[in-house]
């Protein structure tokens, strides 16, 4: 499934790297801990998190993730968005909680 399809179906707000939505999503990973994502997320996974620290961009970039969905209406600092744009990482936001976003993606990717 393409990231653009996910954006449409979940009504995600695309904050950065609008040109990167054609990427194919292989899976998903839910975690708020950077070390956990570094250890366990897979290439082209979409990362679902509440974490908005600047380092999420570096983690997504190093792991080759398809993008980051920031859940729960969390505000994202301007410097994080700027960094994500530079690193070509798509940041998407939603008011929905992680459990529900994961649940919906799980059904779509099955």
């Amino acid at each position: 499934m393409k990231l653009s399809e996910l954006v449409e179906k979940l009504a995600l707000d695309v904050k950065t790297f609008k040109d990167g939505l054609q990427i194919e999503i292989k899976g998903a990973y839910v975690s708020d801990l950077l070390s956990d994502v570094m250890a366990n997320a897979g290439k082209c996974d979409i990362w679902i998190t509440l974490q908005t620290h600047l380092n999420i961009v570096a983690v997504a970039s190093m792991k080759g993730l398809a993008g980051i969905i920031i859940v729960g209406n969390r505000p994202v600092q301007e410097e994080v968005l700027k960094k994500a744009e530079e690193e070509k990482i798509a940041i998407l936001t939603t008011p929905k909680p992680a459990f529900e976003v994961a649940g919906k993606i799980y059904q779509m990717l099955k």
Binding site: N40, G72, N73, A102, G103, Y106
Partner: peptide, 20 residues
């Protein structure tokens, strides 16, 4: 299960998320 799979399976089984 990882958090994604655990959430996915329970959501599939009908458990809703906490309301925001």
């Amino acid at each position: 299960c990882c958090m994604y799979t655990a959430s996915g399976r329970l959501y599939q089984a009908g458990l809703p998320g906490c309301l925001n």
